[in-house]
Design a protein around this nucleic acid. Structure first.
Lengths: 210, 210
DNA sequence: GGGAATATTCCC
DNA sequence: GGGAATATTCCC
């Protein structure tokens, strides 16, 4: 196992800060490991005995460029991550809100990912899936309805495959909706329990007052 | 990267079955990679030049024993997984419902994990987050879905009308489920309002008592 | 043991 | 790009 990621140590996950008097303050939230590793990997983008520049900051220092995706995948990624897939790396960049800002080269940017500002990484967070209360269900509703209305009837009639596909998706969706309902019911139960506890408390209070 | 897990290939994720006439049937669900790897790893539990038995089936063949956790972690795990942590392995076993059945040795069991029954792995699934609340109802649902999928594949293929009909019904069902969810959400709101009123009342009561 | 966050993979 | 399933880690 020598030479691979399992023996690398990226240090403790917790970060401590100290003020100007050297007094230790409470632990700060730590940047996600992915961000720290990506930052470090950009800083050390020169590899191999021929000193190829595989990855580096861009000219402005407000983004980075993967100059050689092949060598990046083969040499750089496995030093920092548990894989050597460029696409998995890209997936993570997207998860953390990086944008690909050039169609001509692999250049990525994030407002809080800048040369010399390792401390700023803590301000980058993963995109969340659940924005509000009714979103996914309302969203799927309107989208589906639009779809159904737009799609031409004759195509559907003539395309068995499409129909089968839609059917399959509908079944999947049904299961998801059923699970959502189960979750709702569970939440109701909890709320009811909660409510009954409050009522019991009130009863007791009333009794004590009599 | 030679010699580590990233170059191992465990084959396609999809499995196909054929009947006795060699006719290819539709793809079967494939066991989780974790289960296949664990099965294979138990089968090949002898390692090193001194031929130590690191892991093997138990006497009955209905479970397996990790005889040497240290060597298992250091030698076996990284060959099959992207880590060398015994605890991560245990975490996965728990996720898939395995039980530790001895306090004296690292012996694990799962009803569907048996010597010579690699095909049975497909019946093992990850535990879901919400087991207790409405299990029977969800279960019957998924069984129903399985039934629907299995029954009369050829008829469905050949009968466009049936497919259209099913499709229509599924959409109707979807609408009903969405309405159910809307009702649930509305009820939740009322319960929350109710709860907050009780909390306010209690506050007032406390205030009056002071 | 298992909940939950993060990482990796797979797929659209 | 991103949703979602699975894997790995971290923590109780």
């Amino acid at each position: 196992m020598s030479g691979n990621v399992m023996e690398l140590n990226f240090g403790s996950l917790d970060q401590f800060s100290s003020d100007q008097n050297g007094v230790s303050l409470k632990p700060l939230r730590c940047p996600a490991p992915f961000l720290l590793k990506t930052y470090d990997l950009v800083e050390q983008g020169i590899e191999g005995e021929d000193g190829i520049k595989i990855v580096s900051w861009n000219e402005e220092g407000n983004g980075f460029v993967v100059w050689s995706p092949a060598e990046f995948s083969e040499l750089t990624l496995p030093k920092y991550f548990k894989h050597n897939n460029f696409s998995s790396f890209i997936r993570q960049l997207n998860t953390y809100g990086f944008k690909k800002i050039s169609s001509k080269r692999w250049e990525f940017q994030h407002e809080k990912f800048q040369k010399g500002c390792r401390h700023m990484l803590v301000e980058i967070s993963r995109k969340k899936c659940e924005p509000s209360v009714f979103p996914q269900y309302l969203k799927s509703c309107s989208e589906e309805n639009a779809m159904t209305n737009n799609s031409s009837v004759e195509e559907d009639n003539n395309n068995h495959e499409l129909l089968m596909e839609e059917n399959k998706n509908l079944k999947k969706e049904r299961l998801e909706l059923q699970m959502q309902i189960a979750e709702c019911k569970a939440l109701e139960m909890k709320l009811l329990e909660c409510l009954s506890q409050y009522m019991d408390n009130r009863q007791n209070k009333v009794r004590r007052l009599c």
